[in-house]
Design a protein around this nucleic acid. Structure first.
Lengths: 112, 112
DNA sequence: GTAATATACCTTTTATGTCGAGGTATAAAC
DNA sequence: GTTTATACCTCGACATAAAAGGTATATTAC
């Protein structure tokens, strides 16, 4: 992991929670969405995301539902994930923790 | 590591670089400074910092110099660390990477 | 005098998040 | 019929950081 990628550690789960709060999404879609929305600054990997989704489901933060792929176009069936109430509460907590942590780092690193 | 601590991963080395850019400091001082300046949000541990300082010294990011402890007061001799030019350049790069990374996370997580 | 506290250094082992590399399957495009 | 894009998945390796333990000095309190 490069220096800049190492900085992004721990942000994967919060970001997944945040995206799924917008609307249910499937794994491959989450990867593509993060990578394009962040203009390549963040680069989610499938090897990172799929195990995490399973873990979060086991923790009852997410629930999953299989759905057919698009009638036209390639691809397999899609597994859509959605937030549970518990996932929603963790999202709130994660946002607070991100704000306090990033504020502290900003102060120390950027002299804010 | 808790969720909030996990978020702070990768920030340790940048913060060390940033503090040492202000003035040379010794390890124990770095720990106390970070913990108080961040109001406990960040909590550097000695088991984290000392191995990191040695690693950074090996990478020629820091240079070290032993100095006597305070004439009055407890404590052993102090090992002061200062930035090398290479450390200074990495600090600049780290600040840029922190800004771009935290900006991307802010956008995805906080909807900025 | 000795126990506790604060300072100040250090190492070794363990836990865990992420990546890299690999694998399966569907369907369109060339 | 090979390549490309979609879409799911697992396993092993790695590196950061924490936990736990260890050494040593000097002041304060009993």
């Amino acid at each position: 992991m490069s220096l800049s990628k190492e900085l992004a550690r721990g942000t994967v789960m919060p970001i997944v929670l945040s995206l799924l709060a917008e609307r249910p999404m499937y794994g491959y879609e989450i990867v593509k969405t993060v990578n394009t929305r962040s203009n390549g600054v963040l680069e989610f990997k499938e090897g990172t995301l799929y195990p995490l989704l399973h873990k979060m489901q086991g923790q009852r933060l997410l629930k999953a539902k299989w759905q057919d792929g698009p009638a036209s176009g390639g691809g397999k069936a899609r597994k859509y994930y959605a937030l549970t109430p518990k996932g929603n509460r963790l999202l709130d907590a994660s946002r607070e923790q991100w704000e306090s942590m990033s504020g502290a780092v900003d102060a120390l690193l950027m002299g804010a």
